[in-house]
Each structure stands twice: as C-alpha cells, then as structure tokens.
Computed example of a mutant assay.
Amino acid sequence: MLAIVCPGQGAQKPGFLSPWRELPGVEQTVASLSEAAGVDLLRHGTESDADTLRDTAVAQPLLVAAGIVAAAQLNADESLPGADVIAGHSVGELTAAALAGVLSDEDAMRLVAVRSQAMATAAAAEPTGMAAVVGGSRDEVLAVIERHGLHPANINSAAQIVAAGSLDAIAALREDGPAKARVIPLQVAGAFHTPFMAGAREELTAFTPSLSPTDPTVPLVSNASGEVVTEGSRYLDLIVTQVASPVDWEACMATLRDRGVTAMIEVAPAGTLTGLAKRDLKGIALADLNTPDDLDAARALVREHAGIAPTADQEN
C-alpha cells in the first residue's frame, strides 16, 4: 500500500525547481500555477535566494506548485496505479488536496495564495517565532512549553515537538528547556498553527465559499488528529481551522500505519517527512522525489508495492 506525502514550509531550498523545468510542459504548467497564485513561481523556484524563500507568501505557493508538478510527472506513466492514501504537512495539506482531487490545481493555488498572505500578515503583527524541541520526555516537553507561555504548534513525532509563540518566550525556552532535549530555533516568520494566526483563520473563512471542493478520490489524511477526510466540505472546514491549530503529523503517521502503508513517496522538495518516517514507521520503503532523476526509482517503488511485475524494459 502506497502513501504519497507532501512537505510543509521550511522544506524549500534555492533552485529546487530548476531540474523540473527541463521536462516538456513543466514551464507552461508552472506559468499557469503562477497566474492562479499571483506569484512568479518559476523565478522564485530557480533564482531566488534562501532569504527570499523564507517569505511565507513566496514559500507556500512554491511548495504547493512543486508538489503538483512532481506528482504529475510521477503519474505521467499511465500504467502506474495511483496512491492508496495521501497526506501533507501544514501547507502540504493543500498540495495533498489537489492530488486527492478535492481541489483543482487552480483552486489549490488560489487558496494557498490567500492562506500565505493572511499568515504573513498575522505574523507581522507582533514578533513571534518557532523552535523545534528534539528529544526529552513528551509529557515534560509539553509541560515546559506551556510553562513558558508557548504553544505546541507541530507534533511531528514522539521525539520532536515544535513550540511557537513570542520571541522572548522562545529565548526563555532555549535557556530553560526540557531535560535531555535540544531546542533548535527555526527560520520561520511567525508562530504558525497557534492562536497568533486567528486573523488568518478569519480571512480563510471568508474566502473558502468561493471554492468548489469535491469529495476526495483517494483517502486524504488531515493534520487534525490524523482524521481521514471523505468529504470536500469537511476538508475546507479542517484547513481553515488548521492555520491556528496544531499540526499533528504523529497522528497522521499513526493513521498511515493503521491503514497498512508499506511504502511512502515524498514529493519535492523531499526528505523531511521520509526522515520522520524512518523513525516512526520503521520497515516501510521510502523514496524522495526531489528531481526528475528520482522518477524511475519512485515508479519502481509504486509497481513493487502494487504487486506489478516490471517489464523487461523497466528491468533494464
């Protein structure tokens, strides 16, 4: 059983879209996605530096577009079966919605444009940030985060929780963190997935009635406690709430485990979610789809876990 997963903000790297633009039709696809988002995604994905890509209003549309492009190239081989389940981390859940057929590519880009701008505006209202807490006892980590007046914004795994809140509180957490844990500041522009994003949630609430969601054609796992979404309208409710609520990726991985997933492919820019899976989903096969050079291995993984024998040409 195959899962396709889509990374969240922070996974972007300068130039990561460059290898994909060499493939036929990709520049035209990116141009169309750029028009829907109102952002020059080809320029940012091939030329912009790391500081520019940290801008929430740039990073989020770029990540969604890159995931759509990579997945489309993977599925260009019509002999391949589709994924059995799809999930995305934070903004990656918008990519996942497009891949699962809940949103058209255009609507996914329209939504991420509004989401990213709204979150950037909310983040600019006061100095806030995020820090990963790696290791330590889960209960103690959560207690120390609360003691410092911070919020658990991302529950990424049993050994990694991301705290978010004021910069002063983040600094205090670094000085007085949980036992046997490392506190690592993240290069993000605000306290995402916390009450600091309430204004962004209001903007999304006003925007989503303009969208036309459909029910997913593939099971779609939500960041909200790993719920499997079966209705498009339910997805919109959850994605609006998500901007100001914690991302529970640990619960998403538990759902993938419970559904019997045996292989996972992470679309570009890949590596973050397969890295978490190495620790929490031990034994499953993993593939990172970062460049077109990774397509053959990813397709072979799809065939293997669908029980399809390779042809002579594929073996060679």
Rank of each mutant, 00 (worst) to 15 (best):
V5D: 08
V5T: 14
G10V: 04
A11R: 09
Q12E: 04
K13H: 11
P14A: 10
S18R: 15
P19Q: 07
E22G: 15
L23Q: 14
P24G: 10
P24F: 07
G25Q: 05
G25F: 09
Q28P: 06
Q28D: 13
T29E: 14
V30C: 02
A31E: 12
S34R: 04
L42M: 13
L42A: 15
G45T: 01
G45H: 06
G45V: 02
S48K: 07
S48T: 08
S48L: 07
D51W: 01
D55H: 12
P61R: 01
L63R: 01
A65M: 10
A65S: 15
A71N: 07
D77R: 09
G82N: 08
A87G: 09
H89S: 03
V91A: 02
E93N: 08
L94N: 06
A96T: 07
A96Y: 06
A97R: 01
V102Q: 05
E106T: 15
D107W: 13
R110K: 12
L111A: 12
V114M: 06
S116V: 05
Q117H: 14
A123C: 05
A124I: 06
A132M: 03
G136V: 04
S137M: 11
E140Y: 11
V141K: 03
A153R: 11
S157K: 09
V162S: 01
S166A: 13
S166I: 00
L167P: 00
R174M: 14
E175S: 14
G177T: 03
V183I: 12
Q187A: 15
V188K: 04
G190T: 01
A191P: 00
H193Q: 01
T194S: 01
M197G: 02
G199F: 12
R201W: 07
R201L: 02
E202L: 14
E202S: 14
E203R: 15
L204C: 06
F207W: 00
S210A: 14
D215H: 05
P216T: 04
P216W: 10
V218Y: 09
V218K: 09
L220G: 09
V221H: 02
S225C: 02
G226P: 02
E227G: 01
G232N: 05
G232T: 05
S233A: 15
L236V: 05
L236H: 06
I239G: 06
I239A: 11
I239C: 03
V240P: 13
T241K: 14
T241P: 01
Q242T: 05
V243H: 04
A244W: 01
S245L: 09
W249V: 02
A251D: 10
A254N: 10
R259Q: 13
R259D: 03
V261G: 10
M264A: 11
V267F: 08
T272I: 12
L273A: 03
G275I: 04
D280R: 15
D280L: 10
A287I: 04
D293A: 15
D293W: 11
A300V: 01
A300G: 15
L301H: 02
L301D: 07
R303H: 10
E304F: 08
A306T: 04
P310Q: 07
P310L: 09
A312I: 14
A312D: 13
A312K: 12
N316G: 09
